[in-house]
Design a protein around this nucleic acid. Structure first.
Length: 577
RNA sequence: CGGGGCGUAGCGUAGUGGCUAGCGCGCCUGCUUUGGGAGCAGGAGAUCGGGAGUUCGAAUCUCCCCGCCCCGACCA
């Protein structure tokens, strides 16, 4: 039983000056967490209990799915990370340190290497697979910009699991099992979330999905189809465009277009010149980029920017993409800044990538590769060729769903889980092999799965709060019932104490506000701020033999006789989220 | 890392060259009060982020450093 009279807790009346997002503000005000440094927080008793509750739900669902819990140190020697190249590749995001002998260590940002080596150390036969292991561990990443309190910290708690299979089909099955376990976990946490297609990015591998909890303060953007439910991270969104029919398009025509530095000014000019009917989406923008210091041109419709994030996510094997600078233009005199068209790309030795919107057979207005000149009726396949199609144009609200063509909506969310099929990258690098049926050595294929446990505390807080404070789901809350004793009569405190004891005996966790001399208003405010789902007021109504039962989330109140309070609460709890 | 903002008691803040750094919340003592952040009286609590400098005099001006927040870049 938690007693307010002795609980290590001090709630704050004012919002802390350094907190903006609701979860951060409220978790600090209600006394769950305190900041130690940027992105590093300590947990007070209420916070620890809440975090443990979430951990335990995650643990139970992992165990139920048949995954086995292990535990690695957070402090790790660099060896394994050196072998996979991540000691270098991880860059400044890795917390590095040395021991007294000068040997290099790191604080684990993620544990692929360690799990791979652990399995390598114990298993060597296909008969031992499939296998799935997990841990709940504190991770360390020296983020360039920690933000939003506990949503993006430099120290955070993560559940990470890894599956090990002999075959690709086995991996798909293990992936599905994790996916289902995640659905159960997040459902139990009462979170609103969408499962969206994601890019596997630098990790390699194929299928990858993110569990995103929609929320205004989230830092991930994703698209959602309101009709068919298609959901994808913006980087992973695909565009379906039918090829154009160019057979009736007039021949390419170059025309004068002085003073048209922007798409808007160009559209204005061509509408005046050719009798209207043109808009920005009919012009073709040629964006010059350096991809690992090789010149590429990316074609997107004039009314859209190139989304560098999307481009890079879809450009396999390229590490660095940057916009052309003046010095780069100087090296390619054939490119006339502001009047570039794809017609001469071959001549200039430039690789042409195009967004799928620039479909074969479509006709465009674009630069004519000469100062103050543009061209119209420039047809893909007739007047220029594209080396490769790549998703690269910015996504807009209302773009067509790739599955059913319904206009999609764009929303923000917090990433609370990520599952993906890693493949053999780590097993290869670290030599994790098993013998197959034929006695031949085979490299194991892996999946990698994560849940941000401490981040889930914030995500749930973001999704369940109001102007009064927090409002936890029953299973997550630091206690299920918050009993407030008001007044100064001993009988009130005695009755509250009895009810608290009875509830605890029935397995219902209780927070009892047994503070003497604290005014009722303070107790109510605190209870609402802390956010325990059921608030029971023992006070005035006791003269009639009643207590008041309130539902924190809805504000519903009812009076029940003291003797029936236990039953009433027992029946009420399962009906709450 | 680029841009912007901020740093005064546990929390929120006032104070832009001049007396003992002010106020609210919280905290301690006493009395009163007890269904919506009570009242009165008394009290404790501050290296004004740090260092150097200018000045008769610095929270206040100058320089350097540190830290924090927000936007962006980045983010297995």
């Amino acid at each position: 039983m938690l007693r307010m009279s002795t609980l290590f807790l001090r709630t704050l009346r004012d919002d802390p000056a350094d907190a903006e997002v609701p979860s951060h503000r409220l978790l600090v005000r209600a006394g769950y967490i305190r900041r130690i440094a940027a992105g590093i927080y300590s947990w007070l008793p209420l916070g620890v209990i809440t975090l443990r509750n979430i951990e335990n739900i995650v643990r139970q669902e992992m165990d139920r799915a048949g995954f086995q819990e292990v535990h690695f140190p957070a402090l790790l020697p660099k060896d394994a990370y050196e072998e996979t190249g991540r000691w270098k590749d991880y860059g400044p995001d890795l917390f590095r340190l040395q021991d007294r002998k000068g040997s290099d260590y790191l604080l684990g940002p993620t544990h692929e290497e360690m799990f791979t080596l652990m399995v390598k150390g114990e298993y060597s036969s296909y008969k031992d697979l499939p296998l799935a292991l997990y841990q709940i561990q504190t991770k360390y990443r020296d983020e360039a910009r920690p933000r939003s309190g506990i949503i993006r910290g430099r120290e955070f708690v993560m559940k990470d699991s890894y599956s090990f299979d002999l075959t690709d089909e086995g991996l798909v099955e293990s992936y599905q099992r994790h996916r289902e376990a995640y659905i159960k976990t997040f459902d139990r946490l009462r979170m609103k979330y969408n499962i969206v297609s994601a890019m596997s990015g630098a990790m390699g591998g194929s299928a990858s999905e993110e569990f995103l909890a929609p929320c205004e303060t989230g830092e991930d953007t994703y698209v959602l189809c309101p009709k068919c439910g298609y959901a994808a991270n913006v980087e992973a969104m695909t565009t379906v465009v039918a090829p154009g029919d160019a057979s009736k398009v007039a021949p390419l025509e170059v025309f004068d277009s002085p003073n048209t530095p922007t798409i808007d000014s160009l559209v204005e000019l061509i509408n005046a010149k050719f009798g209207g009917g043109y808009d920005g989406s009919m012009t073709l923008k040629n964006v010059m980029l350096m991809a690992d210091e090789k010149p590429i041109s990316v074609l997107v419709p004039g009314d859209r920017e190139v989304d560098l994030k999307r481009l890079q996510a879809n450009l396999a094997g390229v590490n660095d993409v940057r916009i052309f600078e003046d010095a780069d233009f100087a090296k390619f005199p054939g490119l006339v800044k502001g009047y570039i068209g794809p017609q001469d790309a071959k001549k200039n030795g430039i690789t042409v990538y195009a967004d799928p919107r620039i479909a074969p057979g479509t006709s465009w207005v674009t630069g004519a590769n000469a100062k103050d000149k543009h061209a119209r009726n420039v047809v893909n396949g007739r007047d220029f060729t594209v080396d490769a199609y790549i998703e690269s144009a910015q996504i807009k609200e209302g773009d067509a769903c790739p599955k059913c063509a319904t206009p999609v909506i764009i929303d923000r969310a917090i990433e609370i889980g990520h599952i993906f099929q890693l493949g053999r990258k780590y097993a290869d690098a670290l030599g994790l092999t098993v013998l197959d049926q034929n006695g031949k050595s085979q490299v194991v294929t892996m999946g990698s799965y994560g849940i941000g446990v401490s981040r889930a505390v914030a995500a749930i807080a973001e999704q369940s709060n109001d102007e009064l404070g927090l409002s936890w789901p029953v299973e997550v809350a630091p206690a299920k019932v918050h009993i407030v004793a008001t007044g100064k009569e001993d009988t009130v405190f005695a009755a509250a104490e009895t009810l608290a004891t009875d509830l605890e005996a029935a397995g219902i966790s209780v927070m009892l506000d047994d503070r003497r001399g604290t005014s009722p208003g303070v107790k109510f405010k605190d209870a609402e701020l802390i956010g325990i789902p059921v608030i029971v007021v023992v006070g005035k109504a006791l003269e009639q033999g009643n207590v008041e039962v309130r539902v924190r989330r809805t504000g519903e109140k009812s009076e029940v006789p003291v003797a029936q309070a236990l039953t009433a609460i027992t029946e009420l709890l399962p009906t709450l989220p």
